[in-house]
Nucleic acid binder design. Structure first.
Ligand SMILES: [Mn+2]
Ligand SMILES: [Mn+2]
Ligand SMILES: [Zn+2]
Ligand SMILES: [Zn+2]
Lengths: 149, 149
DNA sequence: CCCTAATTCGCAATGCTTGCGAATTAACAA
DNA sequence: TTGTTAATTCGCAAGCATTGCGAATTAGGG
């Protein structure tokens, strides 16, 4: 279970890579650390703006791209805006059809032997997405009053 | 292994749903039948245009949306343009990092018992995406001469 | 303190998809 | 066949997410 890098470690990693450590980046390092919400760039931008008015969405995207390039962040494409995950551990996700909530799921990796159709394909990663209803939304039946989280 | 509906069956299904059967739709039914390329709307539009000049991209999107709503088509989000899959069987995909090629993969469904983090989540579907290098691109090593398929 | 390459950030541009509405047409009934 | 009408087509504008660009600013080393 590879642990997520702390803001301090990211500062070191950035400087080691010849990248500068700006207040904007430090803020984002903090907002991401231990963040299990799988936020979008826009969401992070809103939270960051509260603490640092004037930070730009462009800079948020830039920093997220840098972090992803350094392997400190996972870029998750589920349709709609990309989600970013500071948990770079090998794990999977559940996505609620009703409220969009994304959560971590740990499952044994698909064993390549019992898989048909991978002939000659060299697998770098195998990611599972579980779609369905989260406990909150499943409980509420087809009640439309459940607001998007 | 649920088989894919034929163009003729789709004609019946459309009329049954109160939808009209236009030449544009019939063309798309044919182009999709047995299609294992996981095409984008744009790709389908190009192929369709060759046979029916003047067909609009808007209509392609419209028809794909209708088919997906009827459950005759899978909408696959992998980042970038959505891909459409007339194979509505329960299956998975491999995606080549180098050329973008998408292929069907059949694997036993993740067994819910050995999965941690799904507490109370009611799973509708579990989809695996295998990322890596397809046989063609793996063979070519890091050779950049491999053109996008 | 200075220098400079890296960064920020606003704005324009891109790529993909959907909304809208006027003109057309499939399907059904007379 | 012909008429009626609701569904469809399709071009264009708009929307959303993301990236390109470049002038102004700034981190960090000398
Ligand atoms: Mn995660
Ligand atoms: Mn498929
Ligand atoms: Zn939910
Ligand atoms: Zn390939």
């Amino acid at each position: 279970m590879k642990s997520v890098k702390s803001p301090e470690e990211l500062v070191v990693a950035f400087r080691a890579a010849g990248l500068k450590v700006t207040p904007q980046r430090q803020l984002l390092f903090r907002l991401l650390h231990g963040n299990e919400m799988h936020p979008t760039a826009e969401t992070l931008y809103e939270v960051a703006s509260a603490e640092m008015p004037g930070i730009s969405l462009r800079t948020v995207y830039q920093t997220l791209t840098d972090l992803a390039a350094m392997g400190e962040l996972q870029h998750i494409q589920l349709g709609g805006a990309a989600r970013f995950d500071p948990n770079v551990d090998d794990h999977h996700h559940s996505v609620c059809d009703a409220c969009g909530d994304v959560r971590d799921v740990y499952a044994p990796n698909p064993d390549h032997v019992s898989v048909a159709g991978l002939d000659g394909f060299s697998v770098r990663a195998a990611r599972i997405v579980f779609s369905g209803k989260c406990p909150r939304c499943a409980g509420a039946a087809d009640d439309l009053s459940v607001s998007k989280q």
